[in-house]
Simulated scan of single mutants.
Amino acid sequence: MRIGIVKHLNARPLTYYFENSSEYDIISENPSVLVELLKAGELDLALISSIECERNKAVLSYSKQVGVCAKNFVRSVLFYRNRNESKLPEFIYTDSGSRASVALLQCLFYLEHKLTLNVIPTKAEEIQLMMKKSEGSHLLFGDHALLHTTSKDYEIIDLASWWNEVTGLYFCFAFWAYPKERPVSDELLLKSLTIGLDNLDKIIQNEMRLPTAIVDRYLRHELHYIPEEKNLKGFDLYIETCKKLNLI
């Protein structure tokens, strides 16, 4: 079985079992790449951005039993608003790795400001270089956001917190998806998560790039992996808003 694994820390509890089993062939990539491999028939299962599950539901099925979910804080999906800009930015440079995060930012600008936001998909490394020069406003996600340090020129806005403030709901960033003609059982996905959570101490200790206390809080408290009712209602509102903005 060929499985697409998201290479960021937020996915480790979901993917730990697959990564550490000899039964599976693993490809590690950003979700924006994984969805294309899935559609091309090169993968049997992949963890992809939640919006891509809906965008491609003609050819893909997906499970809402588990996923990368947040309540009112996520730490790894961050909007960096340039304080030197006197008004709301006309466009934002967005990390091209996660399409769900980009669409979430567009939805939030619409819900909060009634604005249609223009985005420029950009490699995270290029965004980080621009931010060193205090140029533009930006969106980073995953490990790029977790590990990035910024200057006083930027106001940092957590998108899960912003979504919760605007809607009163929670958010789902990613789900497991698979080709319609080759379904994958929820039992396998739940088994993988259970084993990942059983090994959470090991996952936390293996992360050397951040202080252990931050990793522990991030994986144990700021993220959760079984969607709650407010996550699913938030996902429905997100998809409805994306459709209004012609993002789906």
Rank of each mutant, 00 (worst) to 15 (best):
Thr194Glu: 15
Phe18Asn: 01
Gln128Val: 14
His138Ala: 14
Leu111Ala: 08
Glu52Ser: 12
Arg209Asp: 07
Asn164Pro: 03
Gly168Asp: 08
Phe109Arg: 03
Ile51Asp: 02
Leu14Ser: 01
Asn164Gly: 10
Glu85Gln: 12
Leu43Ala: 07
Leu139Thr: 01
Arg83Leu: 14
Val77Cys: 12
Ile120Gly: 03
Leu47Tyr: 05
Arg2Ile: 00
Ile3Asp: 01
Ala145Trp: 00
Arg75Val: 04
Gln128Ala: 15
Asn206Phe: 07
Ala103Ser: 13
Ile48Asn: 02
Lys244Ser: 06
Asp153Ile: 04
Arg182Ile: 06
Arg217Phe: 08
Thr241Met: 00
Ile26Gln: 04
Leu78Gly: 01
Glu42Leu: 11
Arg81Asp: 10
His148Thr: 07
Leu159Phe: 00
Ser137Trp: 05
Val77Gly: 01
Phe18His: 02
Met130Trp: 15
Asn84Glu: 14
Phe18Ala: 08
Gly97Cys: 09
Leu159Glu: 00
Ser50Asp: 02
Glu42Asn: 10
Asp44Gly: 12
Ile120Leu: 14
Glu135Asn: 08
Lys233Arg: 06
Gly196Glu: 11
Glu165His: 07
Tyr93Ile: 05
Ile127Asp: 05
Asp95Val: 07
Glu187Cys: 09
Thr167Lys: 05
Leu43Gln: 03
Asp44Ala: 08
Val166Leu: 11
Leu78Asp: 01
Gly67Cys: 09
His138Ser: 14
Asn72Ile: 10
Tyr170Phe: 11
Leu200Glu: 11
Ser192His: 07
Thr194Gln: 15
Tyr110Trp: 14
Leu140Ala: 02
Leu37His: 11
Ser101Gln: 06
Asn231Ser: 01
Met130Val: 09
Asn72Lys: 14
Tyr62Asp: 05
Thr167Tyr: 08
Val33Met: 06
Arg12Ile: 10
Glu112Gly: 07
His148Phe: 13
Ile127Gly: 06
His148Met: 12
Ala124Trp: 09
Asp201Val: 13
Tyr16Lys: 05
Ala124Phe: 12
Ile157Thr: 01
Glu54Tyr: 14
Gly142His: 00
Lys114Asn: 15
Arg209Asn: 08
Ser96Thr: 12
Val77Ala: 13
Arg217Gln: 13
Gln128Ser: 15
Ala11Lys: 01
Met131Asp: 11
Thr212Trp: 02
Lys191Met: 13
Phe141Tyr: 09
Tyr218His: 04
Lys243Thr: 14
Pro211Val: 06
Leu245Gln: 03
Leu245Ile: 00
Leu237Pro: 03
Leu45Trp: 04
Lys132Gln: 15
Asp44Ser: 10
Glu222Pro: 00
Thr212Met: 10
Ala100Glu: 09
Ala213Thr: 07
Ser63Lys: 05
Phe141His: 12
Leu219Lys: 01
Thr194Leu: 13
Leu169Gln: 04
Ala160Met: 01
Pro89Lys: 10
Asn199Lys: 12
Val119Met: 09
Glu187Ile: 15
Asn118Ser: 15
Lys243Trp: 00
Leu104Lys: 01
Glu112Leu: 12
Glu240Cys: 03
Ala177Asn: 09
Lys202Val: 14
Tyr170Glu: 13
Pro13Gly: 06
